[in-house]
Write a protein that binds this DNA or RNA. Structure first.
Length: 459
RNA sequence: GCCAGGAUGGCCGAACGGUAAGGCGCACGCCUGGAAAGCGUGUUCCCUUUGGGAUUCUGGGUUCAAAUCCCAGUCCUGGCGCCA
């Protein structure tokens, strides 16, 4: 959320920012409402002032026993009460309207963010790991086929128990999932992160604090009600990213100067509806309704946030470096920034299994595994996250940042495809082996049930 | 889920229906050779800032006037119940 005074005083800058984002917000109408509200506010304040004077006088008149003057004053006070009600009623309406509307105005991008309409204008900063690639099979089996062959990913049965867009991991697949989580969290612990294991359902107020609501209700899973219905502050949603519970855990608090920078990591399941996304690009476990992710959330002093963003990016990258997975870093352009972000870097891992048009020369495709964003005080203002700067009287909004560290399924896709061997097994990256009980290669499992028999996959 | 008690500033904590004490912390100033102590001022938000308004968990109600009385809700604490 932007500051209202800021909107009044920097109208042109905000207008440009909205334009660059391609945001559909009527700023002029907002400012007109604001102007009207300020008029009413001034009138109401004057009337209340008069009434307060009279009320105070009544107290004295009662004490002095001046019956007649008292009656007169009470009469005037009643009149004022009616007037005030009239003026303030409209004032409150406008105030509510303004409060709602300002929630839909997106963050102003940092000046360093490249201009552009959409993902085509994102800027590639650098690549890592392509100079020294491992030897790959001639034909790389995409993870969804391989996962089925090895019987470590089972989408069909998950469709039966839950629905499409969900999957079972089995045996070595499930083991790999747990291993990745522990591996990542160990790395981030080294980097100074304090673990948090948050509650998975979150209230509407939390979703609003980080910017998922009100605009993106359709992307989330709501508990106990349809997404089309009105929701209120206490209604619950399934965590779409640990950013939501973790950022909001200090909502309406004032942190101590000494607490900052505060770095939390949280492993949670994430739930996303992402309605209507089907096709070759989303086959397998690249885009699913439930996935696990280790999230990094930072709370910092405003002057440190851009330095921290660079460091945060490095902390997330470290996971891919240690796994030896090639990747690239993108700087998102203004049109591709998410609602609350002032600046974002994407980390995209290389998954060589499926050739896509926008993939690298070596074939395969890019998979986004993390977005490192600086939200400046946008979320802090919505969620009421403050700190007290040294030598300063009043509390100030702090800055929040976050990055995935990382999204597990897509890393798993990269491992299954990049570490695939000619014989259809998968080599486990060395640093991960201790987390897999010393196992070095994923060899798969014998399939279960008559369906396997019928398909000739069992005798 | 039931019963009882509670929610006041950054923190602690007072307040017969008459317009929010006091303390702590912090900032600034005075005092001092310097510091401590002491003294003074400030320390929520909003507006058109020598001024004014709002604000005692939230929302309603009674009243000329509500932290205070009434109703509803949220959360916390304790007890009981249920329970992996």
């Amino acid at each position: 959320m932007l500051d209202r005074t800021y909107l009044r005083e920097n109208t042109d800058e905000v207008r440009d920012a909205l334009e660059n984002r391609g945001a559909d917000v009527d700023l002029d109408e907002f400012l007109e409402l604001d102007e009207r509200w300020r008029e009413l506010k001034a009138r109401g304040d004057d009337l209340r002032h008069e009434r307060n004077q009279i009320t105070k006088k009544i107290g004295k008149l009662v004490a002095d026993g001046k019956e007649e003057e008292r009656e007169e004053a009470i009469k005037r006070s009643r009149e004022l009460k009616a007037e005030i009600e009239e003026v303030e009623e409209e004032g409150v309406e406008l105030e509510d309207e303004l409060r709602e509307r300002i929630l839909e105005i997106p963050q102003v991008p940092d000046e360093s963010v490249p201009l552009g309409l959409d993902e085509r204008h994102n800027v590639e900063d650098r690549r890592w790991g392509f100079d020294d690639l491992r030897e790959l099979p001639d034909e790389i089996t995409p993870h969804y086929d391989l996962g089925e062959d090895l019987d470590i990913i089972d989408e069909e049965r998950a469709a039966k128990t839950t629905g499409s867009g969900f999957y079972f991991l089995k045996g070595e697949g499930a083991q790999l999932e747990h291993a990745l989580i522990q591996f990542m969290m160990d790395i981030h612990r080294e980097q100074g992160y304090v673990d948090v294991f948050p509650p998975v359902p979150v209230k509407s107020t939390s979703m609003r604090g980080t910017g998922q609501l009100p605009k993106f209700a359709d992307d989330a899973y709501r508990l106990g009600g349809s997404n089309e219905e009105e929701y209120d502050d206490e209604d619950l949603w399934l965590c779409p990213t640990a950013e939501v519970p973790v950022t909001n855990m200090y909502a309406n608090e004032i942190l101590l100067d000494d607490d900052l920078p505060l770095k939390h990591q949280a492993y949670t399941p994430n739930f996303r509806r992402e309605a209507g996304e089907h096709g070759t690009e989303t086959r397998g476990i690249v885009r699913v309704h439930q996935f696990n992710k280790v999230e990094l959330v930072n709370f910092v002093e405003p002057e440190d946030s851009y330095d921290r963003l660079e460091e945060l990016l490095g902390e997330a990258e470290e996971v891919l470096k240690r796994l030896g997975l090639p990747y690239r870093i993108l700087e998102l352009c203004t049109g591709d920034l998410t609602f609350a972000s002032a600046k974002t870097y994407d980390i995209e891992v290389w998954a060589p299994g499926d050739d896509m048009d926008d993939g690298p020369e070596q074939g395969g495709r890019w998979l986004e595994v993390s977005s490192a964003s600086n939200f400046e005080d946008f979320q802090a203002r919505r969620a009421g996250l403050r700190y007290r700067p040294e030598r300063h009287e009043s509390a100030d909004y702090l800055h929040t940042l976050n990055a995935s560290g990382l999204a597990i399924p897509r890393v798993m896709v990269a491992i299954l495809e990049y570490y695939q061997n000619e014989d259809g097994t998968v080599t486990i990256p060395e640093p991960l082996q201790p987390y897999m009980g010393g196992k070095e290669v994923i060899e798969g499992h014998e399939k279960v049930g008559e369906s396997a028999l019928g398909a000739g996959e069992r005798e």
